[in-house]
């Protein structure tokens, strides 16, 4: 199977879906002539032309709304935000329009569209450019929220998102674009709402998604050297959330740690822990712990940034704590 980057996997998904369905188009800042700020849309303008690969002004609220309008009358827009930090300006269209249109129209107007772009912290981009938004967006009924952590999942989920008749928020890892993995050629579909057990072990469940999947795999490798074998449950989609996969793992290991890139308060981990305490209460041998960004805006200085981020060391410590090994 070919090994490709997360970026190229996304490009494959875009190209294949643009070829498959002429109502699909991509719009956003720098997606066309510039080939994408992160080069995800490289080559697409040449192949599909300016009507389908559309450079927009810097006007997130406006072009998100253009996507909503186009979706109402039969197109399948893919709206790219250069980063999700900028998408805050567009949230009215995502939340008040896209997410609610089907419901408040009594089922008359579907919203077959994707809002996608990089999410989460990179390196030393400081407070306004280093934020993980999935818990905000997963809060909203009417949206689906995908958080692929590997190239294969990025391709398979993006294809599913584009074909879905609902508004799908697609959060790519800014630090994942250059990561590599095996990706099937051609038709490769990952269903929305299905988690994957990325590593199997009996001692503890590590539940995560998005960029933190990479951290979780390193944690699993490190702990294996100490004879501790963990389940890594990659949610892949945080809304809808594959709670059955969480339950299966926790009922086996009886211990769980939830790892996420975002902040603690009302984070995705809160939701996972709520589910575990309701559905797996009698299975637990220890309280569930969470690993997340420290409860501060992201600082610029390297040492402070490192201290603010969730990482393998903090995760290992949490797992040992729920195993009463520390």
């Amino acid at each position: 199977m070919p090994v490709v980057t997360y970026r190229d996997a996304l490009t494959q998904a875009l190209r294949e879906e643009l070829q498959r369905d002429e109502t699909v188009f991509l719009m956003g800042e720098e997606v066309a002539q510039y080939n994408g700020a992160y080069k995800v849309s490289k080559g697409l303008l040449d192949e599909f032309g300016p009507m389908r690969i559309v450079d927009t002004p810097i006007t997130e609220l406006g072009f998100a709304g253009v996507g909503v309008g186009a979706a109402m009358v039969g197109l399948r827009p893919i709206v790219e935000f250069m980063t999700w930090n900028f998408a805050l300006l567009a949230l009215d269209e995502v939340v008040n329009a896209a997410a609610k249109m089907l419901y408040m129209s009594g089922g008359q107007y579907k919203m077959p569209m994707v809002f996608r772009g990089p999410n989460g912290a990179a390196l030393q981009l400081s407070a306004q450019h280093s934020q993980a938004w999935e818990s905000w967006l997963a809060h909203i009924p009417g949206l689906k929220v995908c958080t692929p952590g590997t190239p294969a999942d990025a391709k398979g989920l993006l294809k599913s998102a584009i074909r879905d008749d609902n508004p799908v928020v697609f959060l790519e890892g800014e630090m994942l674009y250059n990561t590599k993995g095996e990706v099937p050629e051609g038709e490769h579909i990952v269903p929305i709402g299905v988690a994957e057990l990325k590593r199997e072990g009996d001692h503890c469940s590590l539940i995560t998604h998005g960029k933190m999947v990479l951290v979780a795999m390193k944690v699993a490798d490190d702990l294996a050297k100490e004879g501790i074998n963990i389940d890594v449950v990659d949610l892949r989609t945080v809304r809808p959330m594959d709670v059955d996969a969480i339950a299966r793992s926790v009922q086996k290991t009886n211990r769980a740690v939830v790892l996420e890139e975002g902040w603690e308060i009302c984070g995705m981990g809160s939701q996972v822990v709520d589910f575990i305490q309701r559905e797996c209460f009698d299975d637990l041998d220890a309280p569930v712990l969470r690993v997340h960004q420290e409860d501060v805006p992201m600082p610029y200085a390297k040492n402070l940034e490192r201290a603010a981020k969730p990482d393998a060391g903090k995760t290992v410590a949490a797992i040992k704590k729920v195993m009463y090994l520390d």
Partner: peptide, 19 residues
């Protein structure tokens, strides 16, 4: 939402042009 549907109208116009 005051003004919120004005970009949506532009999107409908975009789709008319697209098709």
């Amino acid at each position: 939402i005051v003004g919120g549907h004005v970009p949506i109208a532009a999107g409908v116009g975009f789709a008319i042009k697209y098709k």
